[in-house]
Design a protein around this nucleic acid. Structure first.
Lengths: 131, 131
DNA sequence: TTGACGCATGCTCATATGGGTATATGTTTG
DNA sequence: CAAACATATACCCATATGAGCATGCGTCAA
């Protein structure tokens, strides 16, 4: 077997620097292939190919605009990456506790949006334990 | 040019599912190659090769113990991955604001630990804007 | 010392990559 | 309709992967 296809999942798609650059560029809003070509200083075919990969894993959405195609980011697939990597956060960040608590808190009370400010105050009890 | 080497960086190293499994297994503590071989149900040579890649990008450290080699996780290289992906968090998490603020806060005032609780209360103003 | 054990390497093979270049398809303008 | 423009695809190629299998090498036991 060879290496897994880049279109297998977000992990593989994002392993390519150029594709990360594309996403970063699109983070500012919709962009056409030509814009990306210029921003990345990469040939148009290459950009189109990278976009294809990103599209196949759902990291970008497209929209037709005349003879152009506007691409837009869709971070959803990155959630899996984040969730995997965030578990290792404590391995490099001593002050990890607080972030973890908040993340955890948000995850289970995402709906109580307006109640959030109240929730965060619970961190007062944790902030005491220096790393 | 072909795909970047898996040993190029954490992004590429971690794109392989098996290597993520290895890290997950090691998250519990040091393990010998044989232990991993059993846990992953993978052949010993493959495990050794994956460990080699993880080692080359600094994701694991080794220690000799008689005729065994104990591997241990080192999350440092994952920090870059986390920092890149975390910026996209708002794209899937509506309650992103708070987390971002806290992360930002921790990053620049990591020392003022006990002051954190006070800082997080500033998010009260943001919580209003549901996208 | 000999042999079993634990792990790392070497080698083969099928596969897909990413860039380069050429070209097909669809759209707007004259 | 023809020409210019914006993208997507098709090929070609050098490269490295990851699994399978064999083997080399250091360590511990009898």
């Amino acid at each position: 077997m060879a290496r897994a296809a880049t279109t297998t999942d977000a992990f593989n798609a994002v392993a390519e620097p150029r594709r990360r650059e594309i996403l970063d560029a699109l983070a500012g809003g919709e962009l056409a292939v030509g814009d990306l070509t210029e921003l990345l200083g990469l040939a148009q075919p290459q950009v189109s190919k990278h976009l294809r990969v990103l599209r196949e894993v759902g990291l970008v959405d497209v929209r037709d605009d005349g003879r152009r195609r506007l691409y837009r980011v869709n971070g959803a697939p990155l959630r899996a990456v984040h969730e995997w990597v965030v578990r290792y956060e404590r391995l490099w960040n001593e002050r990890f506790d607080l972030v973890d608590d908040v993340l955890d808190e948000l995850t289970r009370t995402a709906s109580e949006a307006t109640e959030a400010s109240k929730a965060t105050t619970t961190t007062e009890e944790e902030t005491g334990r220096g790393d």
